[in-house]
């Protein structure tokens, strides 16, 4: 069994956000910190759990991004992935998912994977498109928001549960090869182990310069980014903590809510 997990490096949540003077993307500084997209950690963990069941499994991880994005590949290797591929793209700014999907599939077409996992979306751009696009380019079946999976003993299909509105789950049998986009809560991602981290540091990553790949043409253009207008429609309570507590209770009492 050969699994490819597509992962992404995103800006650490809680990092201060500054907009570049061009108004087209964020401005990163020396103090900007990056981390692995949290949804992707669940995707890596799920692949590792499959490997624990099917010992002959190989897990490859792939990312698209600038040189510092290699940190997430090393983290994945530290968790237990076997090989790592870095599609190196130093371009700054917004890269629509169609481009990422096209580049990843260009690599996939040269290999023979049984499964491709992605996180359901990325924390930063929140598009939730890349995994579905990869499946369509490859003409593989795809299930999104997967919260449970189990591979059949003959390894030809898997039973999956995908989350739908209201927290119910639709159950499907899906034929391999397929693409699954993984929802949080499917497992508890492990921390990288020290021995694996040390090995990951020495591991050679396969680098593919993005320049060498064909780029999708039908893509949206990012015009501007801005801070959302502060449309606080409510009242911001002021004063000491005690003042705020009293004010809150008075308001709730006046509405007979307490």
């Amino acid at each position: 069994m050969k699994i490819l997990v597509c992962i992404k490096q995103v800006m650490e949540s809680g990092s201060p956000i500054k907009i570049d003077p061009s108004g087209k993307w964020l401005q990163y500084s020396q103090s900007t910190r990056f981390e692995i997209n949290k949804y992707d950690e669940y995707a890596i963990e799920e692949a590792i759990q499959i490997k624990e069941n099917f010992k002959d499994t190989q897990i490859d991880v792939i990312t698209v991004g600038p040189s510092h994005a290699s940190d997430v590949l090393r983290r994945a290797l530290g968790m237990g992935a076997d090989e790592a591929i870095h599609i190196l793209d130093e371009a700054k700014g917004y890269r629509p998912p169609a481009i990422t999907a096209e580049w990843i599939t260009a690599f996939v077409k040269k290999e023979t994977y049984d499964l491709i996992f992605t996180g359901i979306m990325s924390d930063d751009e929140m598009n939730a498109q890349t995994g579905v696009m990869i499946s369509q380019i490859l003409d593989w079946p795809c299930a999104t928001a997967v919260i449970k999976e189990e591979i059949s003993n003959d390894r030809k299909k898997m039973r999956i549960e995908r989350e739908i509105e209201g927290g119910a789950k639709d159950i499907f049998d899906i034929t391999l090869p397929c693409v699954l986009t993984i929802q949080t809560g499917i497992n508890t991602p492990r921390y990288p182990s020290l021995s694996k981290v040390l090995r990951a540091k020495k591991k050679t990553l396969q680098i593919i310069p993005a320049k060498t790949l064909k780029t999708a043409e039908q893509i949206p253009s990012l015009e501007t980014i801005q801070f959302p207008e502060k449309t606080t429609r409510g009242i911001v309570l002021k004063g000491s903590s005690q003042d705020k507590a009293k004010a809150l209770l008075n308001i709730l009492a006046s509405k007979t809510l307490v």
């Binding site: 169609a98 598009n127 939730a128 890349t130 579905v132 795809c142 739908i164 949206p220």
Partner: peptide
């Protein structure tokens, strides 16, 4: 932009050679 729409919209854009903007 529901759990179903998100599941097929990006595929439509690829198959129909269009673009996709979600949410």
């Amino acid at each position: 932009h529901t759990t179903s729409g998100m599941d097929y919209a990006p595929a439509l854009s690829i198959a129909l050679k269009g673009s996709c903007i979600t949410a």
